[in-house]
């Protein structure tokens, strides 16, 4: 195995992660809500419980505002290198939406919040989607793909 050692990137990742953690801790400690993006979005668009649209909409708007602010603060980090074309993006979007709705959460809800609560369901889900992610990239890159 060849590991990319980049201490600056690891440090930014740790600080960025801590900011995500503080964001999730704020929402949970003050509002009592789980900062799970697929859940916040899915419930906003599909379940539409009365009176919950404002906070859900504002949280999602915040994601955009935060990304915009950080990309202005650190334009050098505002990179987005797409890994697949239109068919792959549409297929992946469909699968991610279907899967997170079916599995009750994604990286934020299960990974950042559920694991912190020591939820057995979230720990299992996180291990499962990580394993599926590793396996998918392995198959796409090293079994079928020509990329290294």
């Amino acid at each position: 195995m060849d590991i990319v050692v980049d201490l600056a990137s690891w440090t930014r990742a740790g600080i960025g992660g801590a900011m995500i953690g503080i964001a999730a801790a704020l929402l949970f400690s003050l509002n009592g809500r789980i900062a799970g993006v697929s859940g916040v979005l899915g419930t906003l668009v599909l379940d539409r419980p009365a009176g919950e649209a404002p906070w859900r909409g504002l949280f999602l708007a915040g994601l955009l505002l935060g990304a915009l602010l950080m990309s202005l603060l650190r334009p050098d980090l505002a990179a987005s290198t797409l890994q697949t074309g239109w068919p792959g993006m549409i297929a992946a979007g469909l699968i991610v939406g279907f899967g997170t709705r079916m599995g009750s959460g994604c990286t934020s809800g299960h990974g950042v919040c559920g694991m912190a609560r020591l939820s057995r369901r979230s720990i299992t889900a996180t291990m499962t989607f990580m394993a599926a992610g590793f396996a998918t990239v392995f198959v796409m890159r090293h079994v079928f793909g020509a990329a290294s």
Binding site: G16, A18, L69
Partner: peptide, 20 residues
Amino acid sequence: KALVALASGTLFGMGLLLGG
């Protein structure tokens, strides 16, 4: 509570970009 949600989302979005 709405303000908290906006602040949380904003910090979350900043962290996502900074973290890569």
